[in-house]
C-alpha cells in the first residue's frame, strides 16, 4: 500500500459565513466520507482544513495576498489515504463530498524520502 495526498480544491469565494445549522449540514457528508475511509482502514491522516486567507511569497521579496497563484481556485484542505495504485486512489476520491459542491480533488502519490 502506498500513501496518496488528496488535495481538496474549490471556488475561491466559497467560504462565506455559515450559521451553526448550515455548518452542521456541511460537516455531515465530510464526517461520513472520512468515517467511511477510516472504516476501510485506509485513512492514513485525516489532514486538516485550510483557512482561505493566505499569502504567496515570490522571489525578490514579492509577497502577494491570496492563497491561490493564478486561478480563482483555493485549496480547502487535504488528507492522506492508503491505496494500491494511483488509479485506485483516484477511484476512492470519487466519493469525496467536495465534488457535490463543484470542487475537485487532486490525487498525488507521496514518494518516501
Amino acid at each position: 500500500m502506498n500513501e496518496f495526498l488528496l488535495i481538496y480544491r474549490r471556488e475561491a469565494d466559497f467560504d462565506t459565513q455559515f450559521t451553526a445549522e448550515q455548518l452542521k449540514e456541511i460537516s455531515k457528508p465530510w464526517m461520513d466520507w472520512m468515517g467511511g475511509l477510516a472504516a476501510q482502514s485506509i485513512l492514513a491522516d485525516r489532514g486538516n482544513r485550510l483557512d482561505s486567507a493566505g499569502k504567496v511569497v515570490k522571489p525578490n521579496n514579492v509577497v502577494t495576498n491570496g492563497a491561490y497563484v493564478e486561478i480563482k481556485e483555493l485549496i480547502g484542505g487535504y488528507s492522506i489515504i492508503k491505496a494500491a495504485s494511483l488509479d485506485e486512489a483516484a477511484e476512492i476520491a470519487k466519493g469525496c463530498p467536495i465534488l457535490a459542491v463543484g470542487g475537485n480533488v487532486e490525487v498525488r502519490e507521496i514518494l518516501q524520502m
Binding site: M31, M34, A38, A39, L43
Partner: peptide, 8 residues
Amino acid sequence: QLYNKLLI
C-alpha cells in the same frame, strides 16, 4: 457520527 470520529 460518534463511530466516524472514533474510527478517524
